[in-house]
């Protein structure tokens, strides 16, 4: 009986296999304004808008999936979704295990945010999200690294005094700093890390990668990508 139920369930789950394939877009949903889950419970943000546009240009049906940052690469490799579009910077280490499209956000600064501008960012306790280029940078440069699973927790750690400063993409921290009512300030110097943000794909998915690459090239050429970056990140950021 159990076997029967299982078989029926499998059939139901795999029905419609002959239909056009849907591309599943994997994102974190906790990194505004790149990607976040809005109050309606849907994925929203810069990458949602960009991804939908790219899918439309490539005439693909796309479905959005959220996953935790920690497992975002393994889940791509085991086929739970087909792309990573989650503010992921292009780095050599990641490029060894997955493929990236060309960048859709130019190389941007990472910054330290602290409760006071004199915070010791070289030797103090620095919060960063697990598995990010910022976490790697902190670990290599002498400061004590405390890692958290979500970006929000890294900021909370500074607020609670658990860490001296948080190190993350400046574009992520900027709105938090602006709305903190003077509680947070920038500390130390900005650092240039990574080769910009790109979309991650399985190495064997060359065809899909070419489609998205073409879309990004087109959006760079007609200026619509710059307009989209300005819409979500403000005027002060780097453009193509």
């Amino acid at each position: 009986m159990k076997k029967l139920i299982l078989t029926t369930a499998l059939l139901a789950l795999t029905a419609g296999a002959s239909l056009a394939q849907t591309v599943r877009m994997g994102t974190e949903g906790a990194y505004p304004p790149y990607n976040f889950i809005n109050d309606a419970g849907e994925v929203d943000g810069f990458e949602r808008e960009l991804g939908d546009k790219l899918c439309e240009m490539a005439q693909l049906t796309c479905e959005w999936v959220t996953t935790d940052w920690d497992g975002i690469i393994p889940n791509l490799q085991s086929g739970n979704y087909d792309t990573i579009i989650a503010g992921m910077s292009i780095t050599d280490e990641r490029d060894k295990v997955i493929d990236f499209t060309q960048n859709y956000i130019p190389p941007a600064s990472s910054a330290y945010m602290a409760l006071d501008a004199g915070a010791d960012v070289k030797g103090g306790v620095i919060a960063a999200q697990t598995g990010t280029i910022q976490a790697g940078y902190v670990a290599e440069n002498g400061a004590t690294l405390v890692e958290f699973a979500t970006p929000d927790e890294t900021v909370a750690a500074v607020r609670n005094g658990e860490a001296d400063a948080v190190f993350a993409d400046k574009d992520y921290l900027a709105p938090i700093l602006a709305e903190s009512g003077g509680q947070f300030v920038w500390a130390g110097e900005e650092v240039q890390l990574g080769g910009g943000v790109g979309m991650g794909l399985r190495e064997s998915d060359t065809e899909l990668k070419a489609k998205f690459d073409a879309g990004i090239t087109a959006m760079k050429a007609d200026g619509s990508l710059n307009a989209l970056i300005k819409k979500w990140f403000g005027d002060a950021v780097a453009l193509f």
């Binding site: 599943r24 490799q77 085991s78």
Partner: peptide
């Protein structure tokens, strides 16, 4: 590191 089966074998199917 990749695990890749044919699209028809995905459970649940991608378009589900």
């Amino acid at each position: 590191l990749e695990f890749r089966v044919c699209p028809e074998a995905k459970v649940p199917n991608n378009s589900a």
